[in-house]
């Protein structure tokens, strides 16, 4: 096997990993703080993709309108997410977790139908922005500029969030909310708004992921369910609620997928699923997660 090929496979896996990290990090953040397993996270991702397509259509496919579309879509989804938390999900915190699960699952169905009614069932497509439509030769393989951008964006976002959480006052409050919401509330912090804020941020990441994926994938109904499964695998491997765990989980997922097909051709998904199952048995709280009290 040529080294250039292995390098190409590695970069392919890395690109996939960074897309997954964008999506799974939002899921993990929301779970980490709110303890809500948001099934509708994949639906937010899908809405991000559709909104990006819609905005590109409004501003025209020429030029760099794509960036505006990506940001606009992410913001739109973030506002929707925050509104859903504030107006609906809020009422379920005191109930059993099963009700939250059922609620977010209902959201999946509702949002899928909303997308269908709005955008139809056809395949939609968004082109790569002209500034990143080229590719470069790196160690004998062709690397599209857009993939390189995604590979760099992932760690950047991870680092920014880590710094925000560890080094700022807001970060401290958020971490405190994750540890003990009652105590924080008793100390006078407005936990309600922290929750809404986290849902905003988590949904933003889902929307951004959905928007940024459009130049490399077709936008079709069903992309919500497909991605949520992968995102769950990533957070289970890394540890639910663990930020760096999610990063690690995404990296592992991407590479296992990329190299797994060389070892088990025809069983592309097998290696990843086997890995997840193994981790669930040996270390149910994930690689970097903490056992739940």
């Amino acid at each position: 096997m040529e080294p250039s090929f292995l390098f190409g496979q590695f970069l392919g896996g890395l690109t996939a990993a960074m897309f997954l990290f964008l999506i799974a990090s939002g899921l993990s953040l929301i779970f980490g703080v709110l303890r809500v397993l948001n099934f509708a996270h994949g639906s937010f991702y899908m809405l991000g993709a559709y909104l990006a397509w819609q905005i590109v259509r409004w501003v025209g496919p020429e030029g760099e309108g794509f960036w505006l579309a990506a940001l606009g879509a992410a913001l739109g989804v973030a506002i929707l997410g925050a509104a859903i938390e504030r107006l609906l999900l809020r009422h379920l915190y005191r109930r059993e977790e099963l009700y939250q699960l059922l609620f977010t699952y209902a959201l999946v169905l509702v949002l899928a139908d909303v997308a269908k009614v709005t955008w139809g069932t056809g395949q939609l497509s968004v082109s790569r922005p002209p500034s990143l439509s080229g590719s470069l030769q790196l160690l004998g393989i062709t690397v599209p500029h857009y993939n390189l951008f995604i590979i760099l964006l992932g760690p950047t976002i991870a680092l920014v969030f880590w710094l925000l959480l560890q080094r700022t006052a807001i970060g401290r409050v958020v971490r405190a909310a994750a540890l003990d919401r009652e105590m924080l509330s008793a100390l006078g912090a407005n936990v309600g708004w922290i929750y809404t804020g986290m849902f905003f941020v988590g949904s933003f990441l889902a929307g951004l992921g959905g928007a940024l994926v459009t130049p490399t994938q077709s936008i079709v109904p069903g992309m919500d369910v497909a991605v949520i499964v992968d995102a769950f695998i990533v957070v289970v491997i890394g540890g639910l609620g663990s930020f760096w765990g999610t990063f690690l989980g995404a990296l592992i997922f991407g590479q296992v997928l990329a190299f797994g097909i060389l070892v088990f051709p025809g069983f592309s998904i097998f290696a990843v699923s086997a890995l997840m199952a193994t981790i669930l048995v040996v270390r149910p709280w994930g690689l970097l997660g903490r056992p739940i009290r």
Partner: peptide, 30 residues
């Protein structure tokens, strides 16, 4: 499948001169 990159790389490494595909609809698009 959402990410075909590993399959594409693996195939290019084998240097085929021609390829048959039955990926359809949105799958072909992606």
């Amino acid at each position: 499948e959402a990410d075909y990159t590993p399959f594409i790389n693996a195939q290019m490494a084998k240097k085929p001169e021609a390829v048959f595909s039955s990926l359809w609809g949105g799958h072909f698009l992606t």
